[in-house]
Computed example of a mutant assay.
Amino acid sequence: MRAQLVIGNKTYSSWSLRPWLAARHAGIDFEEVPVRLGTAEGAARIAELSPSGKVPVWREGGLVVWESLAICERLAELAPTLWPADSRARAVARAVSTEMHAGFPAIRSTLCMNARASGRRVTLTPEVEAEIARIEAIWGDCRARFGVDGPWLFGPFSIADAMFAPFAFRFPPYGISRPGVVDDYLATLRADVHVRAWADAAAREPDVIEAFECGR
């Protein structure tokens, strides 16, 4: 039976983007199962498919895996190149991926992921500015130490890039720009064929969820 990835709206669901992008880059075949967030129909579908009541969910035969990073780890078991080959690089990639998974609450609440938005304006609090600075430091360190063999954080695409991919739709809509590593890495993300495909699909979605329309 073909594996399934249950995902939310591509406009808004940063958590869904991460394993979707990892699977696409790894060439892992799966059926995309979209659910409409913020609707009664979507809530019922998620309750049916997800033990946690959230998206994304990976369904592979009798195996059900939830949480984006856990799904990415499962994908890496199917496609080991999703983590860097070098053990030291791999350790750092796991560290920054976990930090992204667990942290940056000010960015999450202020700079909502929105794959359709542009020209939004929000107030950048000191907490948001500090988290942006931390993102810049992570990207700069990874690129400087491990990124010589390609345009991604660790050279070739890895799960770390999947975890940070939503910034392609978190920074530009709000005019967040930092010359150097931030703008360069955002350009890499936004030029990626799979990220572009995600954005194109988001542009065709009809739903508007006001809670995720930051800066309007």
Rank of each mutant, 00 (worst) to 15 (best):
E73D: 12
G119T: 06
W66A: 15
P156R: 07
W83V: 04
R178C: 00
I132E: 01
I7G: 07
V193N: 04
F164M: 00
V64P: 11
A102K: 05
I28S: 11
I138V: 14
R18I: 08
A43F: 04
R88L: 15
I135R: 00
H194Y: 12
A162P: 08
L69Q: 09
R90W: 01
A162H: 05
D207S: 10
I107G: 04
L69E: 05
E67C: 01
A144Y: 10
V122N: 10
E129N: 07
R143F: 04
F169H: 12
F164A: 01
T11S: 13
L63S: 05
V57N: 06
V92N: 03
P56D: 08
H194S: 01
P156G: 08
L69R: 11
T11A: 13
I135P: 00
S177E: 02
W83N: 00
L82H: 05
Y185R: 00
P173M: 06
A44I: 11
V181E: 00
D207I: 15
Q4G: 06
D161W: 08
R204Q: 15
V33S: 13
H25F: 11
R18S: 03
E32M: 15
C112T: 09
V96P: 05
G147Y: 04
R134A: 13
P179S: 02
W66N: 12
W152Y: 15
R145S: 02
E213I: 10
R216L: 14
R94E: 06
S158N: 03
M163A: 05
L75M: 02
V182M: 02
V65F: 00
R90M: 11
S50D: 10
E77P: 02
Y174I: 12
C112Q: 06
G27S: 11
P80F: 10
N114V: 00
T81Q: 15
